[in-house]
Design a protein around this nucleic acid. Structure first.
Length: 708
RNA sequence: GGGCGGUUAGUUCAGUUGGUUAGAACGCACGAUUCACAUUCGUGAGGUCACAAGUUCGAAUCUUGUACCGCCCACCA
């Protein structure tokens, strides 16, 4: 026995050394795996946003994915776990803006190219740092295949998709209602809007022969119509007529239109229509061919069409307009009103509905394919209820705004006509005249929604369409990610994967939940309950942290995480260490390669070991990682150590040679089997111990055969 | 407004198609300990499984309803 075992297990010293051994072995790369690894098993790592440090959520996915990949590797699969990093467009730009704000600078007014290159430096720096952290967590991913969302080959594939969508008439640039964030000066997709309940006022304005109810009296200068329900007897006589209404800066002539969407019961049953600043009104305007009059600008201020209110911010303008309407005797009443508004998911500021020319993808036909794939179980979710949740989301999908007015992203490869505003897809950057009107064109300055590129991640990283990896590893086996990005990411991958390759991008989707603090509360900087996984790893060892993440972590439900829990698993690592010490001492002088005749007791013990192994294998195969982890923990500590080892002491110390040999064989067999089964959960301590075991033909534990 | 998830020991959670006395980890109490390990070992306390009704020989588990917590979706201005 090595004298190393006389001291307690030291994870801090062991882990970096072991990781180096693994990495240098080359076995992270499926091409280097021994002959027995034939059937491929592919897992694409969700690329972390390269804009900060790893948090506990990253630790969760690295742990679960590494567990799965190590298990499959030992089972003899040709395992590829492909790592990556995401430039994370808007997210990263927001982080960077905050950083430069602290330095007293602002993104606005900066040369876009300079800003872009600064963010690039920032991102690449973070990316490198995070790669080190992912290594610290023990990730056995193939670094030689690592991808970044801004790699030229990825961009090429993303552009080809853009082009194909255009060819298939699924892409258009048009003036549509977008969600505009005044603070960040960009539009956002519907998924990036958070709805928040808010107490406002509902104003009843005397408006010509009507009284209309509105929460936004400051937009009256952009009104183009009054809408009523066609079946409302009060207003039937006005439908189709023009009415003159007064406002504080003059008069407007509005058309009275009828539409079923108008609720007779709500307010007065008459609705002022402001197409430029309300999504519903925009739809009404399209239907009824009404003009669109913009009165609020991109900075959230009233524009020149509003006379004396021009330049005021919305809130101030609302107060002034209300006061002026009251003075004119046009305000009938004001009620308290609770409703939901759309806010920016990053800064919580109220989003302004605005009409802007943007690029939209008509995702409906793509969604249909994804719905079919889920129905045919070509894609299966763990937990199962997500089959339904995702199907419902896909069924109600709306066109996707992929334009962002930020510099940090993949530029949209297109030209815009200066005279007719036509958007022309131009991947080759060769178009100089508008094909529609012959006008001069300018380069599009918008960038893609970051999910447009990451939505193509599985086939893009594998080199679609001609790469040998694409042929060998696509469709991927499992997509493992956080439940809160299923719509953003998983659904987009499902749609794009089917659209581009005709095949599902992954077969199983395993969703994990949020990692919360020890009382189940969400971690947040303001609450001060944020746990840094790297600190935990330094303090208790990565293996202990991994166990803490897996045990208690059921699919798509949140898991609680605390020091106390991890401490117990640190003790467990040491327990395994000491078990080894005992077993190695006990088998001294015994021929490890021999198979002696076993006592009845030992035969039973070996049979129980096999049953436990089968049980655990079955749990992992069915994504019950939390259960598998508890079972191996319990078996090693409370069956192997507390019972089997204790009971073996008589035979080991005794003179009955037959019983002694049987016990020695049994102890060693259980030790090696346990180490194998424990390896995917606690890779470092098991690999370290494995190196000191005396039997022949030993390989690295990471590529040993999983016990049957 | 619609939908989903949760509610089990002091705490965090399991409970795999309904089946003996409902489990684990941590915590707690008491005791042990030169013999692999004090990062240890043994023993133990602790639960009307949110509530109500129903199905069943049998319910934490299935049905219905209620309450509270959390999440997602939604264009009544």
């Amino acid at each position: 026995m090595n004298e190393k075992f006389l001291k307690p297990y030291n994870p801090l010293e062991t882990e970096p050394r072991i990781y180096k051994t693994w990495e240098e072995s080359g076995y992270f790369n499926p091409d280097n795996l021994p002959e027995r690894h034939k059937e491929s098993f592919t897992l694409i790592m969700p690329p972390p946003n390269a804009n900060g440090s790893l948090h506990v959520g990253h630790a969760a996915f690295v742990t679960i994915e590494d567990l799965l990949i190590r298990f499959k590797r030992m089972r003899g699969f040709k395992t590829l776990w492909l790592p990556g990093a995401d430039h994370a467009g808007f997210e990263t730009q927001v982080v960077y803006e905050k950083k430069i704000e602290k330095e007293g600078r602002s993104r606005f007014g900066m040369d876009p190219e300079i800003l872009r290159s600064e963010i690039m430096d920032f991102t690449l720096g973070n990316k490198k740092f995070m790669e080190g952290q992912i290594r610290q967590l023990g990730a056995s991913c193939d670094w030689s295949r690592e991808k970044f969302t801004l790699d030229p080959d990825i961009i090429k594939i993303v552009y080809a998709t853009f082009k194909q969508l255009s060819n298939d008439n699924l892409l258009y640039r048009g003036k549509r209602m977008v969600n505009w964030c005044v603070k960040h000066q960009t539009s956002l997709s519907d998924l990036e809007c958070a709805s928040v309940e808010q107490n406002d006022k509902l104003y009843y304005l005397k408006y010509g022969p009507f009284t209309v109810a509105t929460v936004r009296p400051e937009t009256i200068f952009g009104d183009v119509a009054i809408a009523v329900n066609p079946n409302d007897p009060r207003y039937k006589k006005y439908i189709g007529q023009d009415v003159v209404v007064k406002n504080p800066i003059g008069e407007l002539t509005l058309k009275v239109i009828a539409d079923e969407v108008v609720e007779i019961e709500f307010g007065t049953g008459a609705l002022k229509v402001t197409p430029a600043h309300d999504a519903n009104d925009f739809k009404l305007a399209e239907k009824n061919k009404l003009p669109i009059i913009e009165v609020i600008d991109k900075n959230g201020r009233l524009n020149e069409k509003t006379g004396k209110y021009a330049g005021m911010k919305i809130k101030e303008a609302r107060e002034k307009v209300v006061a002026d309407l009251e003075a004119m005797g046009l305000m009938e009443k004001i009620e308290d009103y609770k409703h939901s508004i759309s806010t920016c998911y990053k800064c919580n500021s109220t989003l302004e509905p605005r009409v802007m020319p943007q690029w939209f993808v008509d995702v409906k036909p793509l969604a249909q394919k994804a719905i079919e794939a889920i129905a045919k179980e070509e894609i299966k979710f763990v937990p199962e209820r997500y089959n339904k949740i995702c199907t419902q989301w896909l069924e109600n999908i709306i066109p996707w705004n992929i334009s962002r007015q930020i510099v940090w992203g993949i530029p949209i490869p297109a030209k815009i006509c200066n005279s007719c505003e036509e958007g022309i897809v131009d991947v080759e950057n060769s178009i100089t005249k508008c094909p529609k009107c012959g006008g001069e064109v300018r380069k599009e300055t918008d960038t893609f929604d970051t999910w447009f590129s990451s939505g193509q991640w599985p086939f893009a990283t594998l080199g679609y369409p001609d790469g040998k990896d694409f042929k060998a590893f696509y469709p991927t086996s499992v997509m493992e990610t956080a439940a809160d990005i299923v719509f953003f990411w998983v659904m987009r991958m499902a749609m794009f994967g089917l659209y581009r390759t005709g095949k599902v991008p992954f077969k199983d989707v395993y969703l994990h939940g949020l990692v919360n603090d020890k009382h189940g509360k969400k971690m947040s900087k303001s609450k001060g309950n944020v746990i840094n996984p790297l600190e935990i790893s330094d303090k208790f060892g990565t293996d202990a942290m991994r166990m803490g993440i897996i045990i208690g972590n059921t699919p798509a439900s949140d898991v609680s995480f605390s020091d106390d829990k991890i401490r117990g698993y640190k003790n467990f690592a040491n327990k395994v260490w000491n078990i080894t010490r005992f077993v190695l001492t006990s088998v001294e002088g015994f021929d490890i390669e021999s198979k002696p005749e076993l006592t009845d007791t030992d035969t039973t013990i070996i049979a129980e070991l096999a049953a436990t192994t089968t049980d655990i294998t079955n749990d992992i195969d069915n994504y019950r990682f939390y259960m598998a982890a508890e079972k191996i923990y319990h078996y090693i500590w409370h069956t192997f150590a507390d019972v089997i080892i204790e009971n073996s002491k008589v035979a080991i110390a005794g003179t009955d040679e037959k019983a002694k040999k049987s016990a020695q064989y049994t102890l060693y067999k259980i030790l090696t089997t346990s180490l194998k089964v424990l390896h995917p959960f606690m890779p470092f301590v098991t690999e370290e111990i494995w190196a000191y075991l005396p039997h022949k033909d030993k390989k690295l534990l990471m590529i040993e055969e999983w016990p049957n």
